[in-house]
Structures are given as C-alpha cells and as structure tokens.
Design a protein around this nucleic acid. Sequence first.
RNA 1: GGACGGGUGGCGAAAUGGCAGACGCACUAGCCUUAGGAGCUAGAGCCCGCAAGGGCGUGUGGGUUCGACUCCCACCCCGUCCACCA
Length: 812
Amino acid sequence: MKKYDFSKIEKKWQAAWQKKGTYEPKLKSAKKPFYNLMMFPYPSAEGLHVGNMYAFTGTDIFGRAKRMQGYDVFEPIGLDGFGIHSENYAMKIGAHPLKLSKISEKRFYKQLQALGNGFAWNERLETYDPEYYKWTQWLFVQMWKHGLAYRKKQAVNWCPGCKTVLADEQVIDGKCERCSSIAEKKELEQWFFRITNYAERLLNNLAKIDWSDRVKIAQRNWIGRSEGAHIDFRIDGHANHLIRVFTTRPDTLFGATYIVLAPEHELVKHLRELITNYDDVQKYVKEASLRSEEDRIAENKEKTGVELKGVKAVNPANGARIPIFIADYVLSSYGTGAIMAVPAHDERDFSFAKKFRIPMKIVVRDGSVKLEEHLTEAYVGEGRLVNSDKFDGMTIEDAKWAITKFVGGERKIQFRLRDWLVSRQRYWSPPIPMIFCEHCAFNSLGEQREMPGWYAVPEKDLPVKLPYVKEFRPEGKGESPLASVSSFYKVKCPHCGKIARRETDVSDTFLDSAWYFLRYPSAKNKKVAWDKTITQKWLPVNMYIGGAEHSVLHLLYSRFVTMVMNDLGYVNFDEPFTKFRAHGLLIKEGAKMSKSKGNVVNPDEYIKKFGADSLRMYLMFLAPFEQGGDFRDVGILGVTRFLDRVWKMGQRVIEKKRARSDEPVVRALHKTIKKVTEDIAALQYNTAVSALMVFMNEAESLSVGKKEFESFLKLIAPFSPHITEELWTALGNASSIHRAEWPKFEAKFIKEDTFDLIIQVNGKLRGRIKAPVNATEAQARALAEKEIHASLKGAKVRKVIYVANRLVNFVI
RNA sequence: GGACGGGUGGCGAAAUGGCAGACGCACUAGCCUUAGGAGCUAGAGCCCGCAAGGGCGUGUGGGUUCGACUCCCACCCCGUCCACCA
C-alpha cells in the first residue's frame, strides 16, 4: 500500500495548479462569475499569522465549493503593504520600509502558496506598487474635483515625546504607543473627505445588503442618526449674538437651566469683551486642549467647566436668564458645539449641575416622579410635561415638535459620523496628489473658491511617486518627512507655472484598501483604474469575508468610495459587497495570541509537521468559523487520523476498482452530501467536517465502490485540496477534482423508513418503540410497553401528545 | 456606561421547542507491536449501585409550555468593539 506523503503531494499539486492555471477564471468571457474575496492582509516581515490562514482557508473553502458547483470563481490575493504597521515595524528593526516590503512580500506569497488556496495569482496587487497607488491618487483627484475633498483645521493627536502627530490607532489608553507620553490635542490643517454627505445613504442602504447583523449594527451605531432640533438662544442684551444648540429633547426646553459651549466654540472669542472672567476662561480652554483622552475617560463622571461671567442666555421658551458655561463634556465636533442643559432629564447635565450647584427643574413626569422631589438622578423615562405652560400634559413625542415650532426652532437630523480625515504626516503611504500655489492663492484663482491656490496634480502626471527618503522617521514639526525633501515638494504650479509647493502629507492607508476590490479584476490594466466591462461582469463582490474589527472603518470607507464612484458614473452599483460575513477570532489554548505571551502559532511549522491539508481541515473543525475558536496543538491529531483513513480507504478502492458499495454506504453518502453541501453554504465548516467523519465511521468497515468514494472525495476537496487531488488522479481521472462537478444527493436515499418513536411520561423519556403508522396505534403500542406501565403506576392519563414520526407523551 | 457576541462533560464543541453532549481531543481497559505522539476493539456527563436500575444535570432565579440548552423577564460572569454624540 502506497504511503501518504503529504509534503511531497502538496508541493507537487501546488506547482501543477499554478502551471495549469486551475484557479484562473477567464476574466473576459466567464459565464457564471463569482467574486469570492477575503480581506487582503497587511504584511509584516515576521510572516503570515495563523489568524490570517484561518480566515483565508474559510474563504477558500467557500470558493472551492462554488467552483465545483459550476461557477467561475475569482479569488484574488494581494497585500495591503503601505501604512503605519509596516512603517513602525521598519523603524523598530531599523530597516527601510521599501526594502522590508520586498522581503515580506516574498515571504507572504510563499506562505500563502503553501496553504494551497485557489488564488488567482496572476491578478495579485500590492498597495505600495506605483502601478496601484497611481490610481489611489487618481481617486483622491476625483474626490477633489467633485468637491468631496477639502482642508480644514482640526485637533489631532500629538505626541510631545516623539514630536509627531499620531493616528488614532497609535494612541493606546491616551498614550503614545511607542514612547508612552500622554497624547495631547493639537490644531492642524488636514485633508478630509465629505463622507458625511453620504450618511443617510450609508445608513439606508444597509437594508439591502446581506451582511452579518453585528456588522450592520456596528455601522448603524457609528453613523449614529439622531432626530432633534436646532434652537437658538439669545444672549441677554446683545441681540446680534445667538447660541444655536442641537437637542434631541426639545420637549424639555422649559427645563433648560443653563447653556454649555464646547471649549473651542468660536463664540467664546467673540464675547471676550463681555466676559468678566476671561482669564479664567482662557486658562480652562488651554487646559482642556492639553487634557489627555486618558483623563477624560478617568474623569468620566467628574465634570469640569467654567462659567462665562458677565453674560447670560435667554431661554426662548420662558424668557428665563440662564448662565452660560464652557465645559469639555460638550464636543465641538458634534452638532453645533453647544447644548442646552436640562439637568433634571439628562444624566451628564445632572452631574454637572450638581457640581456647580445649578438649579434643576422637572418638566417631565410620570406617576412616580414628584414635582417637589429632590432628584438623586436625572429622570430620562417616559411621561407627560409639567412646568411647561401651555404644553403641560402633552406627551414627550408631541411636545418635541410643538415646542420646537413655538420657539422658531428647526427640526434637524444629526449624524454622529464625522468627515474622514485622510492626511497623515507620515512616510510610508501614497503622497496626496495636490499642489499649493501662493501666487494663484493671492490672485484667488484656485479651482475651488473656498480653497484658493490648491490644484490637483494633473492626471497625466500621476503617480506622484513616493521618493526614497533615508530618514523616513517623522521629525516632529507636525509635518511628513517628505517636507524636508525639496526635490519632492518644489514643483511648478499646474495653473500659472510658477514655483509652487507640493502637498507633503500622505494619505491614510484606509484609502488604499477602500477600493482594491475594484482593481483586482483589472489588475493588469495600465490605462484605467478598472475596466468598465470587466467590472460590470465581476462586481459587486459576491462573497466578502473578513475580520469583525473592520466593521466600521474599512467597510464603511469602501461603501463610501463605491457610492461616490457610482455617482460619478465609474461603476454601475452603489454597494461593493453583496454579502459579507465576519470570521471569528482564533485564540491559542484559551488566550489571545501575542508575541509577549509567546503563544503565537507559526503556521509553517504545522504545515511542515502535519501538512496543509491537515492544518486547513483542523482550523475549520475546531469551532464555528464565524465564532472563532481555540487552537490546541493536540487537536490537530484527530484530523490527521481522519485524512490517514481517507488515504487508506482510497488505496483500497484503487486496488479493487470494480467493487460495488454496500447499500448502507450509499445511504450514508447521500446523507453526507446533503449535510456538507448545506453546511458549507452556511459557513458551518465544523459540522461539515464532522459529517465527513461520521461517514468514514459508518463506511470504513464496509465495501466502498469507486463511484461513491469519488463523491466522498469531492466533499473533502474544498477542505483538503491536495490529498483529494492525488487520490482522484490515482483513480484515473484526467482533469482536476477542483473543477469536477459537486455531487448531488438523491432524496430516495435519505428518507428513513424506520425510526424510533420516543415515549415520554410528563415530558420525561421513558422508552422507545419501532415506528408505528398512526396516532392510535402508537398510543396503544406505547401503553403496552412494560416500562411505561411501571412509570404510569396506574395513574390516570389525562392527555396524550402525539407528534408524528417523533414521540408520544403521556400527561398524568 | 453603551452595543454586540457568548456561558453546555476534563477540553474544543453538537443539538434553535421534542432522545442533551453528535464529531473530535485527552483519558481508561484490552488486542497488536522490538518500539510508538502508530493502528484496532470497547468504555466513558455527574452521583448511588457489582449490576439491573434510579436520581441529578446546559451560568443563577423566575415565567410560558404536555415538553425548554432552545422562547420570555430579571440578574451574574467572560469576550469584542465603541465610549460624555446632547
């Protein structure tokens, strides 16, 4: 009997598939296109994480089954190699990211190859390839041209230790991830994309896409739609100054006993003449800007703030003069940066008012709230209005809009979503393709009146190549390292031809990954970002799989970019991923894998020791794919044993090809076909594998014929592609099993003609009998059973429940 | 604090209103073997019992039902993400 030499078999078939183009669909002429995609990884020179392998295997199995079911499956692969991860790693080990990227690329592709996935290798792409980021820049230019890219000043994270701007991801618990200095806020001018223009559409479209609920919910929360009103408060004695607030509770307006502005609110400066304690106010504003995220979190409940003395606001509902505060619990970036505070009915306002001894006024109550009551917490429940003049007695819902109207306010929908900050003062990313010309700015000749002097790099000049900069570390001036490379930033103005300055910030890596799925089918096209006909054929992506940690950012940005491209006529759909499923997280022996714990699974070792086929099947078997699971070294043995048995069964079939299958084998097979087919479609790989094992247990000792064994092999093929290909070929098949037709089950083999009828007494199992045909017979036979008699103990049967083909339950 | 996911043998898990623990790991006994991280056979939720058998059992407490791991209510614990969004 031939020995199962997995490492030889796996290498052999990987080479053969590549050579034959087994997994390369005909991109132009495919009849049943199916775009099967896993989020591309960001590589590090340390190599592929087993978590990546887990996700890739799960995606590949889905694609392989689809391919065998007659689809032209396109399953591309590439690397998200630009960005902070790679850059930080390069800094850590003191190498240049450009050099490192070449090393990681080689290593990643080698590892992915060894896993035996059905990738379309010809269309691979890397985000740091100028042929790719040329189009990332082109995308930026389109955004600019259509008014969706703009610059504005905003507070960003600043590390005083490293003297650089940090991305949100680099601020861990309010500290710089590298030097642990406490991050501060600093005002810098940045590039933004107007994703908020698409807030409503991003929200509404969720209804029409087939995505995991948890991801949809996360997006819905992130977009955060609130219905409320804008209401203007006058400043007493100064009619020209208005404070506009956003509130979701206009019904509580009569209970607004003070106003709070965000520390950055512009009115603070405008009112400086009137504010008698302006020094204190300024001091607070400065402190607030220095306060770290950490402090804010720690002080969650402990509110701070300063009253603007010398000014009062007027409550438009009842004319009351109320104090104005600034406090950092009000955010300048949400709503109008100002709120009306109703301490009796808002928890945050309540704790602030308590600290600053501001009066509270109850304006909503139900039976349990007494008007004279001294509140111990804000009442945020349902009820009817009180203390609100003619609105007394109204429900909250009715009063909201009645009061808004009464004070001349405006109904307003507010989103929590902010515009997308796309500039980074870093190195390892695509340069932002913009040029600033002082001369044109002076002459107000900019393409956009709001931003004079700014021009996009003409499309024929793309890509703006990222120059090789030896000192790629951020220097600490709040600028990208590119700002010290004069050969890079000194350019001619595309408009007037005089010397101008190129933008030296680079773009957020999320922009790279927000459109890569559009590029894949056209990866080799040098003329356009994506070919229209091919895109129409292959997109949107039919099945997208990835980590739940990308629930908001990546998935939201991709949807946004697609919608913009749809509006501009570049694609004919407005959702990029028809179906999305989040895979679970792989942990190791109960703990999250991390280098510091030293429990990171190195997939190469396992492939070497057990084979890719075993590793793949084990990863899928250990837990439900969408839930994630626990990798245990010993666990893989069960799967290797199973594959050994498959191999041995295969050798027996090969030796006596003419053998026919025993009847129970045929029945077991059809049951297995049904189960495995359904489980793969639902990504329930763990139970699919167990069904394969059940079949083996049932069939192993019986005679298995070639036909049935081949069907069984096909069911295993998506999980363990090499061993199945080897056996399939040894059985005399000329073409690949991975392009063979998926088996179909026949109902006649699945129908059970005998079954056990369960007998219960008061819902407890008391016995079983071979199936009778109808209720009466079932009852009679059940009652005749000795055990049943004993259980009934002569008691009177009050009721009999009979469930056909299942059970009879006597209630006593 | 919020949203979401989860809590079932020694362990990974299955069952989504009807036989709890499929499948696998680890374990025990036996066979085979010079040997075994190999193979084969059998056993195995817990408690009592030599056994037959009985009792208990899906985080906790309550409810609905002839019947609940499954549905409803309240709570506890773990994980992930978000976090003063007015």
